[in-house]
Design a protein around this nucleic acid. Structure first.
Length: 708
DNA sequence: GATCCTCGAGTTCC
DNA sequence: CTCGAGGATC
């Protein structure tokens, strides 16, 4: 059917509208229509194009769904090479960069305090420049002498080059070796934030744009979540996911990946004059419809660069995308040209890197640890590697399924990261690096500590040692738990000491702690008279405690701090708790059939009852806490979550104050949270609070609430 | 029955 | 901090 003029007009209008919505959503990050409306427009356009195949053109938004797979990519030679940048790691490197730029531009080595603006003008005259230097503005003083730089985040993605002819996207290529890359036009057409047609009135006849393809962290996580549900392989990080997606031979797969594009340079322009500065380049790119980094800035001198580096460093974790540093470019393009290139890197730009949060290392071995409940946890012993400033040698692998899912083998090269900036985590193995000598990990059939059988219940992820308290590892953990800060808080009773006490049979259960005397302790390693006295005193002091702490200290399965508090409040004494049957137990908040069975089962054991009797004889007294009549307090009945470092209170102190007035302190933020109390360096909880619209207060705000 | 909210448990390094 | 899972809720 020949396309009627009417249909052609309609198609054009629909395309324009859809691209406008695309731009608003993917580039401006401000959606203009609901998703359903967008889908409706999209389907309407698809239907029209199906009716009139003559109207289909490569820059129609419908073509973003991806063309057929290609047998391989064809090579493209870059008109201008895509060079890499020199790296800077230290402040000194940055100072040297600034110094070399000044030399290259014929400026004096450093603007001396006494010279004022004279140095600048002298240099300008000497260099014979005819354009106004950036520091020749109305501002006066020292800053006049400093070089102006454009600074922006360095995206951790895949560098690509986009070519536009007469405003239409015609070629997209990977960086490759810098001189020739691969033609990935079909894949890049599916990336919604890459304009298929440039926006604006005055379009260049030819345009080549450089930028980065990446995945936003939230998109990456959502994608991995779906892969996990579908039991497909997950990607290790957003960069690998983006790179893998762009180099997909089947564009229909690429189309399903949530890729984004950010532009950062102009490599070719015909038909209109180049802008004067890099900052203006970015504005021009934005005008044509390309996303550019919101964090871009123009700064002066080495001091300005370092300040920018520090600011972005602080915001790094909160940025929507991964970055591995920041990039500094001399702002004026004329100056860039004068500085030119040295070997393969430009002299006018440098990448200032942050310490890596991910590193490559090697799994030397996978050992297992036995926890308090007998849980057998595989732990990777790693070749030591510096990640984000600390040396990492161990990382938990959680459980057998996790090892299988990530397919981590002994001897593998692996990527290690510090999750939430603290706890080391093995992100993924790199199977390409295998030699064939790697060994797969298997959970041992017998406990490495006591030799008892290891059992994994069918619907549990964790394998456990069946040795119970016969197993020295579990006994040690039980005693450490009993003495821990949130339980009976026996200071000085740490791992090394408990190891010795249990290995020498001086202590078999928590009750035995109360029979220790200085003489018994004094014979141990690293244990003088003074230390022994301190420990005996700490054990003595622990006898006076609360019922909630005592219940928690017993280490009943599925009974943690919060449940212990509920149980203490409900029953009032250990005797009453021990006498309760499953029905009575389930009347307590948050106790269902499973927890009730754990509790009843614990007290049914003769051994446990004996330990409790001996604790009571020794004088361990779990006194019930009397609740203040707190109905009048402002915070009564409200739920708080504490995060970050408060200026004057520890989190424990703040929690105690809240609970004393009848408030509740919880560990995770949800819609039901009333207040998040945030201190310095607050992390994900603060983010979540903001996302959910939960009220955030600081320590002073909390004090005001507590004081009514 | 599905979904959301919490809690419990295990873990690293300084 | 993260994961898994128990309990509550709709």
């Amino acid at each position: 059917m020949p396309a009627s003029r009417e249909a052609a007009d309609k198609v054009r209008a629909l395309r324009a509208e859809i691209e406008r919505h695309n731009h608003a959503y993917y580039v401006l990050d401000a959606p203009t229509v609901p998703d359903a409306e967008y889908d409706r427009l999209f389907r309407e356009l698809q239907a029209l194009e199906a009716q009139h195949p003559g109207l289909v053109s490569p820059e129609s938004p419908t073509q973003r769904v991806g063309a057929r797979p290609a047998p391989e990519f064809t090579q493209v030679t870059h008109r201008t090479p895509m060079l890499s940048l020199a790296n800077a790691f230290t402040e000194e490197d940055v100072a040297n960069f600034d110094r070399r730029v000044r030399e290259g531009l014929g400026l004096p080595p450093r603007p001396l305090p006494t010279e004022g603006g004279d140095g600048g003008s002298a240099a300008e005259a000497a260099s014979g420049r005819n354009t106004a230097p950036p520091w020749d503005g109305p501002a006066a003083g020292r800053a006049l002498d400093e070089v102006e730089y454009a600074a922006e985040p360095k995206f951790d993605g895949l560098a690509i080059s986009l070519t536009y002819e007469q405003g239409r996207f015609v070629l997209g290529a990977t960086r490759g070796d810098g001189y020739a890359g691969e033609d990935v036009t079909g894949n890049l057409r599916t990336v919604r934030s890459i304009p298929l047609r440039l926006q604006g009135e005055r379009l260049p006849g030819f345009l080549e744009v450089r930028g980065e393809v990446l995945m936003l962290r939230r998109d990456f996580e959502r994608m991995n979540e779906r892969a996990r549900e579908a039991e497909e392989k997950e990607f290790a990080n957003p960069r690998n996911a983006a790179a893998g997606s762009v180099r997909q031979l089947d564009p229909r797969i690429t189309a399903k990946r949530p890729l984004r594009f950010f532009a950062y340079a102009l490599a070719g322009l015909e038909g209109q004059p180049m802008p004067a500065t890099h900052a203006e380049v970015l504005e021009r790119l934005r005008g044509w419809g390309f996303p550019v980094a919101a964090e871009r800035a123009v700064v002066r001198g080495a001091a300005g660069l370092l300040r920018y580096y520090g600011e972005i460093g602080l915001r790094r974790a909160a940025l929507p995308y991964d970055i591995d540093g920041v990039v500094y470019k001399v702002n004026r393009l004329a100056d860039q040209e004068r500085l030119g290139y040295v070997s393969r890197a430009p002299r006018f730009a440098v990448a200032h890197k942050y310490p890596a949060q991910e590193e490559l290392t090697e799994v030397l071995d996978i050992e297992v640890q036995v926890g308090r409940t007998g849980a057998i946890t595989p732990v990777a012993r790693l070749k030591p590697v510096l990640v984000g400033g600390v040396t990492v040698t161990n990382a938990t692998l959680h459980n057998e399924d996790e090892v299988r899912r990530k397919d981590i083998r002994i001897g593998d090269a692996v990527i290690v990261r510090r999750a939430g900036d603290v706890i080391p985590e093995v992100v993924a193995a790199i199977p390409e690096k295998r030699s064939g000598r790697e060994r797969e990990f298997v959970i041992p059939k017998h406990c490495p500590v006591c030799g008892s059988g290891v059992m994994r219940l069918p619907d549990e992820a964790i394998a456990r040692c069946t040795g119970g308290l016969y197993c020295p590892a579990q006994r040690k953990q039980a005693i450490l738990h009993f003495a821990s800060r949130r339980a009976l808080d026996i200071e000085g009773l740490g791992e090394k000491l408990v190891d010795q006490l249990v290995d020498r049979d001086l202590v078999k259960s928590a009750a035995d702690l109360y029979r220790l005397d200085v003489a018994a302790l004094a014979g141990l390693e690293r244990m003088g008279d003074k230390s022994a006295q301190n420990i005996v005193a700490a054990i003595e002091a622990s006898k006076d405690t609360t019922l909630a702490r005592l219940i928690y200290a017993l280490g009943i399965r599925n009974v943690g701090e919060a449940t212990a508090k509920d149980l203490a409040r409900h029953f009032g004494s250990l005797a009453a708790l021990m006498a309760a049957d499953a029905g009575a137990l389930q009347r307590v908040n948050d106790v269902g059939p499973v927890v009730a069975e754990s509790i009843a089962g614990f007290f049914a054991e003769a051994h446990n009852r004996e330990v409790i009797a001996r604790l009571e004889q020794a004088g361990v007294n779990g006194r019930a806490e009397t609740r203040p009549a707190a109905a009048v307090a402002v915070v009564a009945g409200l739920t708080f979550v504490l995060t970050g470092t408060l200026p004057r209170l520890t989190r424990e102190e703040a929690a105690a104050l809240i609970e004393a007035q009848g408030g509740k302190v919880s560990g995770s933020v949800s819609k039901k949270t009333d207040y998040v109390v945030a201190g310095a360096d607050a992390g994900s909880k603060l983010e979540k609070a903001r996302a959910l619209g939960v009220a955030v207060i600081d320590e002073d705000g909390l004090r005001r609430l507590l004081n009514g």
